[in-house]
Design a protein around this nucleic acid. Structure first.
Lengths: 143, 143
DNA sequence: TTCTTCATGAGAATCATTCTCAATGCGATT
DNA sequence: AATCGCATTGAGAATGATTCTCATGAAGAA
């Protein structure tokens, strides 16, 4: 690597990791996340970056995605096969209706579900509660 | 997945695989599943068998558990790390409240959730719908 | 028993993910 | 600009769960 030209970018659009250095790689991952709407695996995102000319190591993609997920800046969920997939996060807590075939995603909210799961957990004395709720199906286009 | 296809099968307590030979190994796995109440990984169950004298290959444990899960004879879910864990199935469709620390499990039902997720999926034209809903927390004993 | 087919298991292969650690980049400070 | 300190990077190795291969073994039928 020879020349490293410094480009001025707008810092507000893409998510950044709190207390971390805004490196080229992290910006690239954050920006890649803005370029699709469905859930993608870390490897998919890595390929995407490579194909778009940005060279970012696979380890770094994993690390960055995890940091973003921990920070609540991206949604992370698991396919039925257990693979982690990521997607840029809209605002609040929500769940997903995901097409098994094409990955198309619809965000859905279920306030009742939230309350229900919290109350069920409380009834049994469980604390520090979290839950996962994802709906998988075949979307009309793929059917 | 709301199908309730009742086939008349063996009335015994331990599940068997439809259209498969009842071998020593499959019986051993099915019986091991009766010996615990929480969720265990395939490898855990393999160890359990080995320690109890039954020699069953790891591949066979995986194959058998998968077949049983496909058949709806055991519950299979994934930890937050994506590892598959299994447990003997009680009767109908239900969800779980699982202790992150000790694995203790409480089965819970949420008829409202079922209806809600089916209707949400239908609203968006999704078919062949399945959903996952698990609650993780810390149980009173472990807190 | 003999035959046909399914099941088993030891180890290799696969696949996602994590780890290692030397080299590099960032930013604050001279 | 030169420099120091430390977070970050990335290539490849390591890990760990799961699946596959295929020669051998067991089950049921004829």
């Amino acid at each position: 690597m020879t020349s490293t030209s410094r480009k001025t970018e707008d810092p507000a659009t893409a998510p950044s990791i709190a207390g971390a250095r805004p490196t080229r790689q992290r910006r690239a991952v954050a920006s890649a996340l803005q370029s699709f709407d469905d859930f993608r695996s870390a490897q998919d995102i890595h390929d995407l970056l490579r194909r778009s000319g940005e060279n970012v190591g696979l380890s770094t993609v994993y690390r960055t995605l995890q940091a973003l997920a921990d920070n609540g800046d991206v949604d992370m969920l698991r396919t039925e096969e257990g693979e982690a997939i990521y997607r840029r996060c809209s605002t609040s807590h929500h769940h997903h209706l995901v097409c098994r075939a094409c990955g198309r995603t619809v965000e859905v909210e279920g306030p009742a579900v939230e309350k229900w799961s919290d109350s069920v957990a409380a009834q049994h004395g469980f604390t520090d509660v979290s839950h996962t709720l994802e709906i998988f199906g075949t979307c009309p286009t793929c059917a």
